[in-house]
């Protein structure tokens, strides 16, 4: 395993584009801390975001992992190009001739994905811990270390997303098209989701329709949760309406934001299944191909 990681990092560290993108990514992760500096001070209206409770334990784990996962696109570019470049430079062929097996090749990429996801998780953990210790209203150990499943969800989310990137890199062999392919897939999922909502609503109106009446007992989200990108975004839901300040505003205007914000085991399981499918499909694809 160390040998494979060593090989992959040798390829990455000498590539300037990868180095720059990785650096930008980690700088952006750190920049979450800058939210603390958002402060309005206009006469009577004093607003300091850091004191609105967003850095309270354990809410901070939810908030920061959600914010940090927005930046994953920078690392996706690195992952996709490290795969697709092997095709365009034909170095994949050379690697195999030099004595790397196809399995080792895929594993070296997957281990790299795991390392990137693990470092990101560690990074978010440290940044959040420091921010929390400075701004949180609650500082008991038991509260600090509750809700840590958001970090696990973050790790799985990144790994699944990057595995998707690896798979697309192998499938289309060109970085630009692979990233485009992921965007297209995002549209396909959204359109399908929209279609389901439309379909269910029209079925509910037509209650006499016996054929589809069974369908109305399951909701759109029950179906959508099995799709790759939807399953990843389900892992960490948007944290904004969970905030006390927002909740109280909601109550005043008569809107109820009650939603299930927690991380469920079956969501972790679905995303993990996708990781396995993407990596195994990459291997099967590579094995079947003549280079």
């Amino acid at each position: 395993m160390l040998r494979l990681l060593n090989i992959e990092f040798h390829k990455l560290k000498h590539n300037r584009a990868s180095r720059v993108l990785t650096l930008i990514y980690f700088v952006l992760l750190t920049s979450i801390a800058l939210i603390a500096a958002i402060k309005f001070d206009i006469g009577p209206i004093k607003f300091h975001l850091a004191e609105q409770g967003i850095f309270n334990f354990p809410y901070i784990w939810h908030f920061n992992t959600y914010m940090a996962s927005i930046f994953k696109f920078f690392l996706l570019l690195v992952i996709v190009s490290m795969m697709a470049n092997e095709y365009s430079n034909k170095t994949l062929k050379q690697n195999l001739i030099d004595g790397l097996s196809k399995k080792e090749f895929i594993l070296s990429k997957f281990y790299t994905v795991l390392v990137f996801a693990a470092i990101s998780t560690l990074f978010v953990f440290v940044v959040s811990l420091i921010l929390g210790l400075i701004y949180s209203d609650y500082n008991e150990l038991s509260i600090i270390f509750s809700d840590l499943e958001y970090l696990l969800a973050f790790f799985i989310k990144l790994t699944a997303f990057f595995s998707f990137g690896l798979f697309m890199g192998i499938l289309v062999k060109r970085s630009a098209f692979a990233v485009g392919g992921i965007l297209v897939w995002l549209f396909v999922e959204s359109i399908f989701k929209g279609f389901l909502f439309w379909k269910f609503n029209s079925d509910n109106l037509d209650t006499n329709n016996q054929v589809n009446s069974d369908l109305s007992t399951i909701s759109v989200n029950d179906i959508m949760q099995f799709f790759p990108l939807e399953s990843m975004s389900n892992l960490i839901k948007q944290p904004f309406t969970r905030l006390n300040a927002v909740q109280s505003v909601g109550k005043q205007i008569g809107e109820n934001f009650s939603q299930d914000f927690s991380v469920h085991w079956y969501q972790i399981a679905i995303a993990s299944a996708w990781i396995f499918i993407f990596i195994y499909a990459s291997y099967a694809l590579l094995k079947k191909r003549d280079l």
């Binding site: 090989i7 040798h10 390829k11 590539n15 300037r16 050379q94 030099d98 004595g99």
Partner: peptide
Amino acid sequence: NFYPYMTAVQNLKLICKIK
């Protein structure tokens, strides 16, 4: 077929690692 962005020595080191 080599990595265009690496020098000769860097490319050969990578092959040493693989082999």
